[in-house]
């Protein structure tokens, strides 16, 4: 169970949060099909750390972005 750093509330237990997936750079709504395809579907899984979104569901309801190491699960700032 991760201890996730909410920017508002500080470190809280994972069960308070909801995962929001990779921190993608949302294309503009009217961007092309292939832009959206690349951003929404294609993943770079070659790195050890990723940027991702979490949602503090049972807390302040804030959506935020963090960087996490997928092997150690450590959050990096």
């Amino acid at each position: 169970m991760l201890l996730i750093p909410c920017p508002n509330c500080g470190e809280r237990d994972e069960i308070e949060f909801d995962y929001g997936g990779r921190a993608i750079q949302y294309p503009a709504l009217n961007n092309s099909m292939s832009d959206w395809h690349m951003v929404l579907h294609q993943r770079d899984n070659s790195t050890e750390t990723i940027e991702e979104f979490w949602y503090h569901q049972s807390g302040c309801e804030c959506w935020f972005k963090v960087t996490r190491n997928l092997n150690t699960h450590e959050f990096e700032s």
Partner: peptide
């Protein structure tokens, strides 16, 4: 597979 495919510039549409 994702990492291997990325060695030939293929980004696979999957999460781990």
């Amino acid at each position: 597979s994702s990492k291997l495919a990325s060695m030939v510039d293929i980004k696979l549409p999957m999460d781990l």
